[in-house]
Design a protein around this nucleic acid. Structure first.
Lengths: 220, 220
DNA sequence: CGGGCAGGCTAACTTTGTTAGCCGACTCTC
DNA sequence: GAGAGTCGGCTAACAAAGTTAGCCTGCCCG
């Protein structure tokens, strides 16, 4: 709950800070409830991609820009400005803007994966789904522009380090115990986040109730 | 299943053609089930926005471009080309590209609203949710670029004719009978569509099972 | 000491949305 | 019927975006 990765200033909070999840033990069931306890971790956390110091600076600059001023200001010229070099020089380090965006999303997946795995580690069987979904929501809104970018459909996921998608999505499987329900829950959570961001729920209704309804639908 | 609004050629299929849903196709099961029947329509279908002939041509051209060649080709110059005038002349009819995008999304909301209301009209209590979700999914994939645009978060919904959001979302309320569950189901459906489009489910798993799991979660 | 390369720079190109200003044709009024 | 005005096209141009080409400087290594 403490880590804030949308710091306006700068600093690779997502990138570096997420080096290792708190790890702890796997599943720690507290309540002697009926539902099955969260499953242990299986998918291995992929090794973070190799990046030169400069590239890390560039990605950090992009993240800072995104967080501080929104998606429109994520331009090669602005990024170069933050790093202290000209936009053209960025191409000595990255093949282009799509690669920068992919790197940003890659970092975000590492960060949210760590957060969600940790939440599942700590949750009881009775409230895994609720906790997981709450953390997902919190993270998405704490990194709104990044989240938007990640789900814009323009990012080439093949640029990610292998296994990242699987690993970062695994918490949903661990929480539900069923691959299809996990995907459905993942989709539902994502969908609610996007709709909330879009302010598609024009009526100022109680969004907490909506989220509770969703969690309830997925809690056996 | 028959109407195709992503016709590569041109023609205002969504705009004009969707005045009335096909109504027929969906839901066939007539089981005497326990769950409450779908609620009646309440929200009024808003009056379509006033548009000059030229504006309708422009919007149709944009829709055709989007369907035929994807989002990247939706440029003012290309749209003008299809219409037969220069890009600059488009500004005699529309204030800018955002207005064109809003008009495209507006039409899409009318079209999907008609489809979904029709499906709910025809569905039995036992399969409303399944039918509704199936039709939503079908529509989204038949108009993928348009769907992407609509949910990109860049579209200014205040440009829509008033009441459109409420009316087009009402089928989810009619199907579930509860506003919060409706929003949750809406979000879940949307989320699954987006994830499926993004190919986020890398494992070639049975997506039908995922959709069934989702529908099951929201079927009392 | 000299070659190569890593990494900066300027200049420039292309494509995008958009604005300014011109002009022909149609319509409406006196 | 003649003038005025508007509608809707046009060309030219601009700014901002991503990107490429080509130059130059300094460092490292043989």
């Amino acid at each position: 709950m403490t880590r804030s990765s949308s710091l306006p200033g700068a600093g690779p909070a997502l990138d570096e800070g997420a080096g290792r999840g708190d790890g702890g033990g796997a599943a720690a069931v507290r309540s002697p409830a009926v539902p099955a306890p969260p499953l242990p971790r299986v998918a291995a956390r992929p090794a973070p991609p190799e990046r030169s110091e400069r590239v890390r600076e560039i990605v950090a600059a992009g993240r800072a820009l995104l967080a501080a001023e929104g998606p429109d200001t994520l331009t090669m010229r602005r990024v170069g400005e933050v790093v202290g070099i000209r936009a053209a020089s960025l191409y000595k380090h990255l093949p282009g803007k799509p690669a920068l965006e992919a790197a940003l999303v890659e970092d975000a997946l590492f960060a949210i994966g760590d957060q969600l795995h940790a939440v599942v580690d700590a949750a009881s069987a009775a409230d895994v789904v609720t906790s997981l979904v709450a953390e997902y929501r919190r993270f998405a809104f704490a990194n709104a522009s990044l989240y938007r970018l990640a789900t814009s459909g323009r990012v080439d996921r093949s640029l990610f380090v292998p296994g990242l998608d699987d690993w970062s999505g695994e918490p949903f499987y661990r929480a539900t115990g069923d691959p299809w329900v996990a995907q459905a829950l993942f989709g539902a959570t994502h969908g609610l986040v996007v709709l909330e961001m879009d302010d598609a729920f024009s009526n100022s209704s109680d969004l907490g109730a909506t989220w509770r309804a969703m969690a309830a639908a997925f809690t056996r």
